[in-house]
């Protein structure tokens, strides 16, 4: 067994091209935030409808959720990109803030990737919220009704505030999954972090730096995931439902 022969010259190559990885990181963060936001905006009502909804609306939400959860994300992204006629918004300029040089990404690829990752995330987040809502004792709803709140008010003021707090651990999981799955946007040519790493080691000067580049990209994903999980841990503790102890 040899010791891992990582080479100083290859690390220097990563060093001089760090800004290319940072441009990729920019797109990765943008895609993660956009997808999670879309996932929350669609997933939270989705979860509520699955619990309180009636009739065809609930059936539709359930059906769509099952479809989205049951399809591999790469298939979804390719389908959304090639199967949906997105408005041609052209190239989206990004960066330009020092020290990050300005660059452009394919707008349609960004829309398709955000939609695919966001809706898939909505399907998962709806289950996180459904579980969190279900975890609030039915008796609380009855108690709220007995003091004169309407059903909507009871859900809005009694159940939701507690359910949101209880959904943080599940949401944390979902965040990590979406962050890492943004790398699949590579399939439609969106220049996110992994694509940028790929760009680096397929150019003649970087051909010996494959492992160094992949290790760097892995480290960036790890740092992002670690920091966000720690932050969400704090948020969870800060907003934990008081136990009265």
């Amino acid at each position: 067994m040899d010791i891992l022969p990582l080479q100083a010259g290859d690390w220097a190559f990563v060093g001089t091209n760090w800004w290319i990885l940072m441009q990729g990181l920019y797109v990765t963060v943008l895609l993660t935030v956009g997808s999670l936001l879309l996932g929350f905006l669609a997933g939270f009502p989705g979860g509520a409808i699955e619990v309180y909804g009636r009739g065809p609306l609930r059936s539709v939400v359930r059906g769509v959720g099952v479809l989205l959860r049951g399809t591999p994300i790469v298939v979804l992204i390719v389908l959304f990109f090639f199967g949906v006629q997105w408005p041609d918004i052209g190239a989206v300029p990004l960066g330009g803030l020092l020290p990050l040089p300005a660059f452009e990404i394919n707008g349609q690829a960004l829309l398709a990737s955000t939609a695919a990752l966001g809706l898939r995330s909505a399907a998962y987040q709806s289950q996180v919220f459904r579980g969190a809502i279900r975890s609030i004792d039915e008796g609380q709803l009855e108690a709220a009704r007995s003091v004169g709140l309407s059903k909507l008010e009871a859900v809005r003021h009694v159940v939701v505030p507690q359910a949101l707090r209880r959904s943080i651990p599940g949401f944390q999981n979902e965040f990590t999954i979406v962050l890492k799955d943004t790398s699949i946007a590579f399939a439609v040519g969106l220049a996110e972090l992994l694509t940028r790493g790929f760009e680096l080691f397929t150019q003649p000067a970087g051909q010996t730096a494959v492992v160094e580049i992949i290790l760097t990209v892995s480290a960036i994903y790890f740092v992002l995931t670690f920091l966000t999980n720690r932050t969400l841990d704090r948020v969870e503790n800060r907003f934990a439902i008081p136990t009265g102890e």
Binding site: M1, D2, I3, P5, L6, D10, T208, V210, V211
Partner: peptide
């Protein structure tokens, strides 16, 4: 740490 890592 197996042999080589493609560093040429």
């Amino acid at each position: 740490g197996c042999n080589g890592n493609g560093n040429g």
